[in-house]
Design a protein around this nucleic acid. Structure first.
Lengths: 225, 225
DNA sequence: AGCGCGTAAACTGTATGCAGATTGCAATCT
DNA sequence: AGATTGCAATCTGCATACAGTTTACGCGCT
């Protein structure tokens, strides 16, 4: 049985990482409610590990802002209110706008070319309504944008914010017609970047993310019930 | 709100928090060099604790991006190169610009009033060349700006970035004439915000931080030698 | 001499035990 | 009855012990 556990760890990461993901999911999907206590022993029993990895996982979740910790107290689920969610989506728009602006100014010829290719290739996925594949393309597309800004710290912030929002955004491409609209919005961004129009790229990226945000927040509040 | 509480906890040191700060300082001040290994036992001996708190501190430092961790490997000092530092200062300018813009649009009457008072009060410190006190005022001033944006996630990002840059910025007010210039720059920001001119506030905040960055980076590269 | 291979040392990951802090309850006092 | 203090159960913080993994070195083989 030790063997089995080891295999799973190899497959999905270390024990602690697994727990971080599992607990993060529970918090973010509303299985656990804000203020709910996360006592170490219960979690240890639940995941069939000792308290040590549980403590490390809680510390990491604390750093991620998903749980609040105070000395000698149980960690509690942080209040990821709808207001806070909204602030994250808004921040995402702002960050994406910055990336697009900087990308328009700084991307190398190769990067521009790759971005355009990536974008063009996705047209096929839209026609096929291949939601899974389009989602993968979408991630890649935005990642190229972030990298194109040539600023490591901004890249870090935007990817972290994106990761935290991921659970709330999962279903957006299921909305009818969203794929085609997303493609069109990407198109505006790409065009602006290709001609080095920083202001237009920034504006287009801002709107694009704002639209995604609206769709996702609806989804999130559905889920909260 | 939540953020403030967490900050205070950081100030109130448990063993782990103390270690996090101590190690972070060593990394950021160049006492430890990028790539240098942080093996758990050595640190435990050095701080005269067991490996358990060391591990938790390293995990937190990993989440902060100051050390890189891989399974079954020593944590190593992350590469906080001058390039990365530069990217953080640039990000700081961008974030501050966003905050100023949003603040100009969203600050309540009370917030605007408090900001102006805080700013006016600092004039006295400039004349007295009270560097320590002005630094405290400066922190307060910028914090008000960040809060004024009314976006918790952006507040979190900007304060975190600011915290990571703090060690590099400490000496900036010692530069001759910097206090008066800082005051003037603040003045432009405040004026723009008071009349709700988002674009002007944003522009002024961006320049202000860019200037601080330049001064600090000079200082940082001095220190690196 | 160079190349594997195996073994041991060093180190990380996890479990468990103990000490101190906190909380809730209950018995006592006002 | 309500408040208060003391005690017990519970939980966190840290130390120590053990298991599994990686790394480095030396030995033998070609």
């Amino acid at each position: 049985m030790k063997q089995i556990r080891r295999k799973q760890i190899i497959r999905t990461g270390t024990t602690v990482e697994q727990m971080v993901r599992a607990i993060a999911d529970m918090i973010v999907t509303g299985v656990m409610h804000p203020g709910e206590r996360l006592d170490e022993l219960s979690l240890a029993v639940r995941f069939d590990v000792s308290r040590t990895p549980v403590r490390e996982a809680l510390r990491e979740l604390g750093a991620m802002g998903l749980v609040d910790r105070e000395p000698n107290r149980s960690a509690v689920v942080a209040n990821v209110t709808e207001a806070y969610l909204h602030s994250m989506f808004e921040a995402m728009s702002e960050l994406e706008a910055i990336c697009a602006r900087l990308a328009a100014e700084r991307m190398t010829v190769d990067e521009r070319h790759a971005l355009e290719l990536e974008h063009r290739a996705s047209a096929r996925l839209v026609h096929a309504n291949a939601q899974e594949d389009y989602a993968a393309h979408n991630t890649e597309f935005h990642t190229r944008l972030y990298r194109g800004a040539h600023n490591d710290h901004i890249y870090e912030m935007v990817t972290q914010t994106r990761a935290r929002l991921a659970p709330f955004r999962r279903a957006q491409f299921r909305l009818p017609g969203r794929l085609a609209k997303s493609y069109d919005e990407h198109d505006v961004i790409v065009t602006a970047i290709m001609r080095g129009d920083a202001a237009a790229a920034s504006q287009a990226a801002f709107s694009h993310v704002a639209i995604v945000s609206d769709a996702s927040i609806v989804f999130a509040s559905d889920k909260a019930e």
